[in-house]
Simulated scan of single mutants.
Amino acid sequence: MATTTERMGFFTDTSVCIGCKACEVACKEWNAIPEDGLTFTGMSYDNTGGLGADTWRHVAFIEQRKPVGLQDAEVEHDAYEGLDVLGMASDASQGRDGLRWLMASDVCKHCTHSACLDVCPTGALFRTEFGTVVVQQDICNGCGYCVPACPYGVIDKREEDGRVWKCTMCYDRLGDGLQPACAKACPTDSIQYGPLDELRERAAERVEQLHEGGVTDARLYGADPDDGVGGNGAFFLLLDEPEVYGLPPDPVVTTRDLPSMWRHAGAAAATLIGGLTAIAVATGLRGRRR
Rank of each mutant, 00 (worst) to 15 (best):
L83F: 15
A124L: 04
R256A: 04
R163Y: 02
A181N: 08
P259A: 08
A204M: 04
C17R: 11
W56N: 00
Q71W: 06
E212G: 07
A234G: 02
S90R: 15
H58Y: 10
K28S: 13
E212A: 15
R219S: 05
M8P: 01
W56M: 02
G142W: 12
R163P: 00
L238Q: 00
S15I: 05
W165I: 00
G153E: 04
V253W: 09
Y80R: 13
L210Q: 09
C20S: 13
A89S: 12
L272T: 14
A79T: 08
P151A: 02
V107Y: 01
H77L: 01
D138E: 15
D138H: 13
I33C: 06
A269L: 15
E198T: 10
D46R: 08
D176M: 15
G69S: 14
L102E: 06
C20P: 04
G95C: 08
V253P: 00
N47R: 14
G69E: 13
A79Y: 11
G275D: 05
P151Q: 02
V135D: 06
D217Y: 07
T39S: 05
G49H: 08
E63W: 06
P148I: 04
A282F: 11
D161V: 01
D13Y: 06
A282M: 11
Q137S: 15
D106N: 09
K166M: 09
M261E: 12
R263F: 10
G50S: 10
V59M: 07
L102I: 07
P180V: 04
P248D: 03
L86I: 08
V68R: 15
C170A: 12
G274I: 04
Y245V: 00
D138R: 11
G87H: 03
V107N: 13
G144N: 14
Y193P: 03
L174N: 10
C146V: 02
R200L: 02
A32C: 03
L196S: 05
N31M: 06
E160L: 11
I273F: 07
G153K: 05
A181V: 09
C143Q: 07
V133W: 02
M169Y: 10
Y80H: 14
Q209A: 12
L174K: 12
L220V: 01
V75W: 14
G162D: 03
A26T: 04
G275S: 11
N232D: 04
A73C: 04
C111G: 03
I155E: 02
L247H: 01
E201L: 09
A115K: 03
P34S: 06
T4Q: 14
R286W: 11
C170D: 15
Q179P: 00
E198H: 08
R163G: 00
Y221C: 02
D84Q: 10
D161N: 14
L38I: 12
M8N: 10
M261A: 14
D46Y: 07
V147C: 08
W101A: 06
